[in-house]
Measured scan of single mutants.
Amino acid sequence: MSIQHFRVALIPFFAAFCLPVFAHPETLVKVKDAEDQLGARVGYIELDLNSGKILESFRPEERFPMMSTFKVLLCGAVLSRVDAGQEQLGRRIHYSQNDLVEYSPVTEKHLTDGMTVRELCSAAITMSDNTAANLLLTTIGGPKELTAFLHNMGDHVTRLDRWEPELNEAIPNDERDTTMPAAMATTLRKLLTGELLTLASRQQLIDWMEADKVAGPLLRSALPAGWFIADKSGAGERGSRGIIAALGPDGKPSRIVVIYTTGSQATMDERNRQIAEIGASLIKHW
């Protein structure tokens, strides 16, 4: 067993022997301040990774656009098919120029040779490549099948209805392509620590998230040296922004954090800054 596999296998073990965790309302004060600064709703939840206990939450059962955070769930569904012998990570998928959609920095470079399922998941999570996500959605049967996968996990809230990039439209009061912070946090925890996926697939999923290259201005910008984070960000229309993450000190994750916002007129930089400040408060009061 590799060191990384050992780390993920012992996530519940280490967490069980940690000192009790206590909620700190100071972080919620910052979440509410972010709402004021952005002029928009902000949803927040913080779960203990081992027990699933909610440590703090704000608007945990209000719907927010998922945006690209759905790509972690998508690759979880792909990995479940791999575990069941219905898919192979090494299978190569070929596609054409007509398949390319807006923001496809990886797939646009491989029109000639195609990409493997493993490479597509890596591109979808680490670079948020939209064509990679659409190609992977095709392998599982489309958005409705991802929703069905989530329902089978016990998540009857999260739903995907459309493809990239239309799913980022974020129309107010439109339930399409949305989740709730509580539902997303619980589902992410199941994917990373539950028995739904094999140990190898859980490790692969967290490795992809740990290698995320496009979430630097968010929670990662607030992390002290030595902290662990595996995350996936999302951005959408109407001032929408979000991030889902597993993080913790001492090089291992111990909490799940989900943050979503929508309806702001603020710039992307300002949305990023507010999420980073929430992260800084979380870490300060850990």
Rank of each mutant, 00 (worst) to 15 (best):
G263M: 09
I229C: 09
G239E: 07
V117D: 05
V78A: 09
N173S: 08
L137C: 10
H285Q: 06
S221F: 03
E46C: 05
G52E: 02
Q274G: 03
G234T: 06
G194N: 11
Q86V: 10
T27D: 04
S264L: 05
L74P: 10
G90S: 07
D207P: 03
L192H: 12
Y103E: 01
V157E: 00
E26Y: 02
R41G: 07
G236S: 13
L192Y: 05
P60N: 11
Q86G: 10
T262K: 09
L192N: 03
A34Y: 05
V82N: 04
L55R: 09
G248Q: 01
N134W: 06
T112S: 11
H151E: 05
D174E: 09
M268Q: 10
Y103H: 06
T107Y: 00
D99W: 00
L167G: 06
I259W: 10
P249S: 04
L100N: 09
R189P: 11
E210S: 14
F70E: 04
S128P: 03
L223A: 03
N50E: 04
S104P: 10
S51F: 11
K284V: 03
S80H: 11
R202S: 06
I243D: 10
E277W: 11
R189A: 10
D36W: 13
E102P: 10
R202M: 03
M184T: 04
E195T: 11
T147K: 11
G263N: 03
N152L: 11
D99A: 13
I275K: 00
A230K: 00
R241L: 07
G154L: 04
L282M: 07
T27Q: 08
I259E: 06
P224C: 09
D113G: 05
A215P: 10
T262G: 09
I45F: 12
I171T: 13
G216I: 06
E210H: 12
A230V: 01
E277T: 13
P217I: 10
S264K: 04
T158G: 07
A148D: 01
A182E: 06
Y44T: 11
G43W: 06
K190A: 14
T178W: 05
R241Q: 14
E169A: 07
T27H: 06
R92Q: 12
V214F: 05
L199F: 01
S264R: 05
I45H: 04
F64T: 12
M127L: 05
K213R: 05
S57G: 12
R91W: 06
V42S: 00
G279C: 13
S128M: 01
D83V: 04
E175T: 00
R59P: 07
G226A: 02
A170F: 06
L223P: 04
L192A: 07
S128I: 03
A200N: 03
S51G: 11
Q86M: 10
K71V: 08
Y44S: 08
L205T: 04
F64R: 11
I256S: 12
V117A: 08
S80M: 00
D113I: 11
E102A: 11
E56C: 00
I140Y: 12
M209D: 06
S128N: 04
G85P: 01
A185M: 06
N168V: 06
L111R: 01
V258S: 05
N50Q: 01
F228P: 08
T139H: 00
T193V: 03
G85V: 02
V214M: 01
M127F: 03
K109R: 14
E270F: 11
I45M: 08
S254C: 15
V29R: 09
E26Q: 09
H24T: 11
K252R: 01
L247S: 06
P253W: 05
E87M: 14
C121L: 05
I229A: 02
A84G: 07
G85W: 03
A222S: 15
G76E: 04
A182W: 12
R159P: 12
Y95L: 00
T261N: 08
L199D: 02
Y260R: 00
G226W: 09
A225W: 00
L38I: 11
Y103R: 01
R41W: 14
W286R: 09
T131H: 14
T261I: 04
Y95E: 01
G142Y: 11
V101K: 01
R162K: 07
E145I: 14
Q88A: 11
E270D: 15
I275R: 11
L218I: 11
G263P: 07
N152I: 12
L28R: 07
G114M: 15
F228S: 12
D177K: 02
R59D: 08
T198A: 10
E35P: 05
D177R: 05
G141V: 13
P249F: 00
T131L: 11
L199V: 03
Q274M: 10
P143Q: 12
I278Y: 15
Q203S: 11
R63E: 06
G263H: 09
D174T: 07
L28H: 10
E26G: 10
G226I: 01
I125S: 15
Q203H: 15
F70H: 09
R162T: 01
Q265P: 11
L136I: 13
P249I: 07
D177V: 09
L223D: 10
L150M: 15
E62R: 13
M127A: 06
R91S: 03
L191P: 07
P165E: 03
I93Q: 12
Q265H: 12
S104W: 11
S281C: 14
D83Y: 00
G43M: 13
Q97F: 03
A123S: 00
Q204K: 09
S201P: 11
F149D: 14
K53V: 01
T179H: 10
K109I: 08
W163M: 04
Q204C: 08
L136W: 01
E277N: 10
K232A: 15
S51V: 15
E46K: 05
E277L: 13
T179W: 00
L137G: 06
A170D: 00
E270S: 13
M67S: 09
E175A: 01
L73C: 09
P224W: 15
A211D: 03
Q97N: 08
D83L: 02
H110W: 15
E169H: 04
A185F: 06
